[in-house]
Design a protein around this nucleic acid. Structure first.
Length: 233
DNA sequence: TTGTGATCATCT
DNA sequence: AGATGATCACAA
């Protein structure tokens, strides 16, 4: 028999195994992990923005590909890497999913893409400051998380407001300013990309694709609640 | 082409 | 400095 390729890792059977695998990565650098899964750590992320996420997917045995499903379909768990600074605070917002512009007005929160993705997430903090070379960046302790009642209510409130604006045909008036924890921002290869949307009269029109993102204030609160983080000063 | 993985780069 | 809008790579 052929031995498995280094990049092939069978998926975890349950949450406990997934969490154990994730904890085993804590403290390792990206430069150490990359060759284990058949990757090479780039000098910077300008041309490899998804590198850290891809590396963790492989290292943890997530299903490859770009399907609109959780990374661990049988477990219903979504994997998210989270770039953090020296104080353990997120450096960036977190992309959640594309927005189905022509449908979202008729979707309920409970069946929304946002809720399906965020109901169970494995957060993996990774050093994200640009002054640290990518190969030298270390993986932190993973957190298997579900939103508590307060967090879910807040996300649902934002989602319903944002989905409502889109459903009314006002997607082009939306900016990243709206939404306390969840926001809508462009999500495209470049600014000339267009996809089908709906205007205020219900007619079809071509608009810049959008995605839902979690603000860093939200993910920062999650980390702060579950970890002891260094304080400033 | 669309959705996945995100960070970059600029403006306030 | 922090946040918004713009952008990059890859898979199916």
């Amino acid at each position: 028999m052929l031995s498995p390729m280094p990049s092939e890792v069978s998926g975890p059977r349950d949450e406990a195994e997934l969490l154990a695998r994730a904890h085993a990565l804590a403290g390792a650098t990206l430069g150490e992990l990359a060759p284990r899964v058949g990757l090479i750590a780039p000098p910077d992320l300008r041309r490899a923005k998804g590198f850290v996420g891809q590396l963790l997917e492989r290292a943890l045995g997530a299903s490859a590909g770009s399907q609109a499903q959780p990374d661990f379909p049988t477990l219903g768990v979504e994997l998210k890497s989270l770039p953090v600074n020296a104080r353990g605070r997120p450096c960036e917002s977190t992309f959640v999913c594309h927005i189905p512009l022509t449908e979202i007005g008729s979707v309920e929160w409970d069946e929304s893409r946002v809720w399906r993705k965020l109901r169970r997430v494995l957060w993996v903090p990774v050093e994200g400051e640009r002054k640290i070379g990518v190969p030298q960046r270390r993986v932190g302790q993973a957190l298997l998380w579900s939103p508590d009642a307060e967090e879910e209510a807040a996300l649902r409130f934002d989602w319903e407001e944002l989905a409502g604006v889109i459903g009314c045909g006002d997607v082009e008036s939306l900016t990243g300013h709206l939404g306390r924890y969840l926001q809508v921002r462009p999500k495209a290869a470049h600014g000339r990309v267009r996809r089908q949307g709906v205007d205020r009269e219900g007619a079809s029109l071509a608009v810049l694709p959008r995605g839902f993102y979690l603000r860093a204030t939200f993910t920062g609160r999650i980390l702060a609640r579950h970890y002891v983080l260094p304080s400033r000063g």
